[in-house]
Simulated scan of single mutants.
Amino acid sequence: MAKVEYSEGTWRKSSYSGGGNDCVEVALFTGHVGVRDSKNPDAGALSVSPSGWRGLLHAVGRN
């Protein structure tokens, strides 16, 4: 798998975050979804498959 340049993504916070930095940010990339901590975006990101992301959203009731 090629190294992902997460800095090139368009990151967005959930509308449920309340405007603070205590949430996660999500960016869509070709073939995967990036997830990172909004308080420390330079610490890296977790990469999950689109089906894994949909499963997580379904599990927390945000589908």
Rank of each mutant, 00 (worst) to 15 (best):
M1K: 03
M1G: 09
M1F: 00
A2W: 07
A2S: 12
A2E: 13
K3Y: 08
K3Q: 11
V4G: 02
V4M: 05
V4R: 04
Y6S: 12
Y6C: 05
Y6P: 00
S7D: 15
S7W: 14
S7E: 14
S7V: 12
S7P: 05
S7R: 15
E8F: 05
E8L: 09
E8A: 12
E8V: 04
G9A: 14
T10D: 04
T10M: 08
W11P: 02
W11T: 01
R12F: 11
S14F: 09
S14W: 07
S15I: 10
S15V: 11
S15E: 10
S17T: 11
S17M: 08
S17C: 15
G19I: 12
G19M: 11
G19L: 12
G20N: 14
G20F: 06
G20M: 08
N21E: 15
N21Q: 14
N21Y: 09
C23M: 10
C23P: 05
C23K: 00
C23F: 07
V24R: 00
E25P: 04
V26D: 01
V26G: 01
A27T: 13
A27H: 11
A27W: 10
L28A: 12
L28K: 09
L28D: 10
F29W: 07
F29D: 07
T30V: 04
G31V: 08
G31W: 03
G31K: 09
G31I: 07
H32N: 10
H32L: 13
G34Q: 07
V35M: 02
R36L: 01
R36M: 03
D37Q: 00
D37S: 01
D37E: 05
S38N: 14
S38A: 15
K39N: 10
K39S: 04
N40H: 14
N40P: 04
N40W: 09
P41I: 04
D42S: 15
D42K: 14
D42N: 15
D42R: 14
G44R: 00
G44Q: 06
G44E: 05
A45S: 08
A45W: 02
L46A: 01
L46R: 03
L46E: 02
S47N: 07
S47E: 06
V48T: 03
P50I: 07
P50T: 06
S51R: 11
G52C: 07
G52S: 12
G52V: 04
W53K: 01
R54A: 10
R54E: 08
L56H: 13
L56C: 11
L57G: 06
H58C: 04
A59W: 02
A59F: 05
A59H: 05
V60T: 06
V60E: 05
G61H: 08
N63R: 07
N63K: 04
